[in-house]
Design a protein around this nucleic acid. Structure first.
Length: 955
RNA sequence: GCCCCUGUGGCGGAACUGGUAGACGCGCUGGAUUCAAAAUCCAGUUCCUUCGGGAGUGGGGGUUCGAUUCCCCCCGGGGGUACCA
């Protein structure tokens, strides 16, 4: 072969890998296992851009590296194939989501294969495949048939619960539940089946309940908390409102404490763990009751600051609180009604964006402060949330910013209870200071006072210690078509029944019209034949959310074709858990939280051997794009749109211009300060945006309009400078770079190495196609160690020289260490150094080059497979043995010491290894370059660190 | 507001536990080869400089013989979260 030809080489070896099933992985092996997982992609219609494969390349390198080091490596891929976008697309286009999804999957597969990944495709899964979602439905039913036992701290069969109810009622049951009323065994046994079922719903881990949910009108569905950002839907950015609906939920709150504590056992980034801890939001405090004056009612509140109770001068209930109706006085009825009307009219978004403004109203009732025994007014206010704590607070305006703002606005009493004069600069959230105006607490530090009050509250029987979580149960119903149907039917009373396991999977029926049904229902609600069963029962018409299928997919890869179990026990006991998970941070609180919960549930049921699914997790950064735009004058010129060069626009003040996005493909030297468009580019732009066909394009070289360029001097072409900035790579920014295009030009090996070379995987960085030449040159240089320009094979099988071995083993040592710490960018640098040095040293030695080929193969699998065979091997390089660094090749007989005067480097000098500290000191002081600095000065100290540096302190 | 991450040449980025700041690559400059270009190769490239040196890792302080690295304060960028009681 004459020169390095990636296109031919890559095609050839892909076929070889395929024909020989090189990447097929067995569940039976004597080798230690290693499981490398990529985050489950949703196959979107726009395909992959260069940002997506970043994590896939890193995981591919690592899994190849592990395989070469003697591990049996599982590295699978599949698709999170149910989801909203396909359905939204179906509504617009009429194309069935199954069709568009499978088309998109085909495109993804093609793009992924193009990059030479070592996936075992025989294990591919798709969540929309009935063979897969049979088991999603099955796990849901296990959740439905379980409750959480606080005494043994794990999930238990609901059968054990009903047995206990039959014998002793629910008094002795310590379970996670929303059941408040106590009942005896007799009462339970006398209940109707429907009544019993209602009670069980308060215990089931998958349960159905009417509650306030995030309703998105535009998407026609309910969303989980993590799918709502800033009061709008994460997908699409549509408004979301709180709506009371009958919905399925998962009792993830049962696992809050374990989800929090077990974060200490996994190797994840601090920021990711922090996000999860925040989302769980654990806080310790007290739950206590305030009596209501002239009433039997009590108001239950949660507080983390029981020490400040002597400063509690009023109470606030959430507007939706149950007691509001009961406690409102007739005089205040009109005011309360007005206020509730106002609150209900406000969208979630308004409520969030106008946080600064305090609103509320007095309801005309009073509570008794249990410690001061004074009557304090009860208010309602938006700032108290129905679904956190008890939906009611004791307000301490002196020690809480929100209470303070409220009290100030409405003229409520403020009593100082914490003296912070000892702590200048301390804020209210610091929880420090000395107690005042608080009877027996006076003089105590806050910490001590909290503990004292907690004891006091329990002693007096007005409340208990309590731990609260921000984490809410997860909405599990979606009023959509393209998701897993619930294996649930209802009788005429609305009581739910699970389908029998033998009836699974409950397949998603076919549909032609994908618009939501009326009344906030899924399109499935229109399928009368499907809904209504012969026995008079009806089916659930909602479908499961996206996180259902993705919460356990990594288990299915272990045993993808098992028809008997969701995963075979032999398989799961062999593969255990995921050793390395690479993916973006966007799943921090959604997918990662849900799948951890499912895993813990399966663990409680002894179906998986580990308590956590993902041992180590790396968040890859985003690859950003360059966003290019043109400056368009806000005022038209002679009725024509008028674009101007960025330079001219800046002179005239950019506020007079609007920025019009332009496709980066049209821009010359895009991304640089000098990015510009010439006449050719302008023509492309006009073809793309025909509304600007008559526009004026003005730059310092001249003016272009309607096909004519009028030069301002002797220029023959336009050079209209565009505005470049770094931002998200996305279809809507017209800056998407398709990896296929890069691979076509430079080859997959080059693309893979260049993505790694851009920088650390965790960091976000901009894509710049220009830089790829460096990696391309490197690969050609590598090739040139094997073949000269005439195609002559240069490799010689002889004894390697010491120099060559040293170059090789330096690289082995560094690359090995760098892969282990996922520093792929420095690995690429090390390869470049190695090849540069071998080239300079004119190395064509077989032993040296063969080890180099193995070392490089995880990064550039195609070219190394070619060279591996060229070296005379006839099995795949994947089955080679990874070279180990031999320190004896690396020893030097001297070291070049930097010699500093007062910490500032002044000279370099070679000293033989093995010299004593005294000899090194003497040698350094004798140097001419050093004497120049020490002359006439006192040498106070000399620090000698062998094989590092010498520092001379003079004064 | 709170929490987490981050700040190094024109650019992407190196520098493992404190020890030669700027590896490697892009870009740029000069040169070789060429009729010319591409490709390739060689040399240079942090800034200032009176060519002795001086300054320098967002800014200011500190610890140390020595700080990009550790500590304190401040500023900028990114992400998460938000009336969470």
């Amino acid at each position: 072969m004459m020169e390095y030809n990636p296109r031919a080489i890559e095609k050839k070896w892909k076929k070889y890998w395929d024909d020989n099933q090189v990447y097929k992985v067995s569940n039976k092996s004597d080798k230690p296992k290693f499981y490398v997982l990529d985050m489950f992609p949703y196959p979107s219609g726009s395909g992959l851009h260069v940002g997506h494969p970043l994590g896939y390349i890193a995981s591919d390198i690592y899994s190849r590296f592990k395989r070469l080091n003697g591990f049996n490596v599982l590295h699978p891929m599949g698709y999170d194939a149910f989801g909203l976008p396909a359905e939204q697309y179906a509504i617009q286009s009429g194309i069935h989501p199954a069709k568009s999804t499978s088309d998109n999957i085909a495109r993804y597969r093609e793009q992924l294969e193009n990059l030479g990944f070592n996936y075992d495709w025989t294990r591919e899964v798709q969540t929309c495949d009935p063979k897969y979602y049979k088991w999603t439905q099955w796990i849901f039913l296990q959740l439905y048939e379980s409750y959480y036992d606080n005494d043994i701290n794990k999930a238990q069969s609901i059968r054990l619960l009903t047995e206990a109810f039959e014998k002793e009622g629910n008094l002795g049951i310590n379970a996670v539940t929303t059941q408040e009323d106590i009942f005896t065994a007799e009462e339970w046994n006398e209940m109707t089946a429907a009544q019993q079922e209602d009670i069980l719903m308060n215990y089931r881990l998958a349960y159905r309940k009417k509650g306030y949910v995030n309703w998105c009108e535009e998407l026609g569905t309910v969303l989980a908390n993590d799918e709502v950002k800033d009061g709008v839907s994460e997908r699409g950015g549509y408004p979301v409102e709180k709506k009371a609906m009958l919905q399925w939920s998962l009792r993830i709150t049962a696992y809050a404490e374990r989800l929090l504590n077990d974060l200490d056992t996994v190797d994840w980034s601090d920021s990711l763990k922090a996000m999860q801890r925040n989302w769980i939001g654990r806080s310790e405090g007290a739950q206590l009751f305030f009596d209501v004056a002239d009433s039997d009612e009590k108001i239950e509140v949660f507080t983390t600051r029981p020490d400040t109770i002597f400063g509690a001068t009023y109470m606030v209930l959430a507007p939706e609180h149950d007691l509001v109706a009961k406690l409102t006085s007739s005089e205040q009825q009109a005011a309360v009604d007005d206020y509730l009307k106002y609150v209900n009219a406000r969208s979630e978004r308004e409520r969030m964006s106008e946080v600064k403004e305090v609103t509320g109203t007095f309801i005309g009732a009073y509570a008794i402060n249990p410690f001061t025994k004074t009557k304090i007014p009860i208010w309602i206010g938006e700032y108290v949330l129905k679904d956190y704590g008890t939906g009611a607070i004791m307000a301490v305006p002196s020690d809480d910013d929100r209470d303070n703002a409220f009290a100030t606005k409405f003229g409520l009493e403020i009593i100082d209870v914490v003296d912070k004069t000892d702590y200048p600069g301390a804020t209210l959230s610091d929880k420090i200071g000395k107690m005042i105006n608080s009877q027996y607490l006076n003089g105590m530090e806050v910490k001590e006072a909290i503990e004292t009050m907690l004891e006091k509250i329990e002693e007096e029987g007005i409340g208990t210690r309590k731990i609260n979580y921000k984490l809410r149960d997860a909405n599990y119903s979606r009023q959509r078509y393209w998701g897993e149907p619930f294996p649930i039917v209802y009788n005429q009373d609305g009581t739910s029944f699970p389908l029998d396991e033998s009836e699974l999977p409950l397949e998603l029926p076919n549909l032609e019209d994908f618009k939501p049904a009326s009344g906030g229902k899924s399109p499935l609600a229109r399928l009368d034949d499907w809904i209504n069963l012969d026995n008079g029962y009806v089916r659930e018409t909602d479908t499961m959310p996206g996180f259902a299928g993705s919460s356990w997919y990594f288990l299915r890869y272990m045993d993808a074709h098992n028809d008997e179990e969701f995963v075979g026990q032999d398989a799961v006991n062999y593969w255990q858990d995921v050793d390395l998970y690479i993916g973006g941070t966007e799943h921090a609180v959604g997918h990662l939280m849900y799948s951890r919960m499912w895993h813990k549930f399966l663990y409680d049921n002894k179906l998986v051997p580990t308590a956590e699914p993902y041992k180590k997790l790396i968040n890859q950064g985003m690859i950003q794009g360059v966003i290019e735009s043109l400056y368009l004058m806000k005022e038209k010129k002679d009725g024509f749109s008028h674009f101007m060069c960025a330079g001219l626009a800046k002179e005239q003040g950019v506020e007079n211009f609007s920025k019009i996005l332009i496709h980066v493909d049209f821009v010359k030297e895009y991304g640089s300060d000098n990015s510009y468009i010439d006449i050719d580019s302008i023509k492309k732009f006009i073809d793309w945006r025909p509304s600007y066909k008559d526009a004026i394009f003005e730059c310092s070289k001249g003016v272009y309009q309607k096909g004519v360029f009028t030069s301002k001097g002797d220029a023959t072409d336009s050079r209209l400078v565009t505005q470049s900035e770094v931002g998200k790579m996305s279809k809507s920014k017209y800056n998407v770079i398709n990896p296929d295009v890069v691979v076509e030009r430079y080859g997959a090996d080059c693309f893979r190495m260049y993505e790694m070379f851009l920088g650390p995987i965790e960091q976000s960085k901009p894509w710049d196609t220009n830089g790829i030449d460096g990696v391309s040159k490197f690969l050609r240089k590598l090739w040139s160690l094997f073949y000269n320009e005439n195609g002559d094979y240069l490799v010689k099988d002889e004894e390697p020289s010491k120099e060559h071995l040293k170059i090789l083993h330096t690289a082995i040592k560094k690359v090995n260490a760098d892969i282990e710490r996922f520093s792929m960018n420095t690995c690429v640098s090390n390869f470049m150094v190695c090849v540069n040095d071998l080239k300079k040293a004119k190395c064509n030695n077989k032993a040296v080059l063969q080890d180099l080929v193995i070392l490089l193969s995880p990064f550039a699998p195609h070219v190394t497979e070619e060279l591996w065979h060229a070296l005379g091997n006839d099995t795949t390089v994947n089955d080679a043995t990874y070279p180990q660094a031999n320190e004896s090749y690396l020893v030097e007989d001297s070291y070049t010491y930097p010699i500093s005067i007062n910490g500032k480097k002044r000279a370099l000098a070679d000293f033989a290894n093995g010299l004593s500290k005294e000899e090194l000191e003497k040698g350094a002081l004798e140097l001419e370059a050093i004497q120049k600095w020490t002359e006439g000065k006192t040498i106070r100290k000399v620090i000698v660190v062998p094989k590092r540096m010498i520092n001379i302190v003079v004064g």
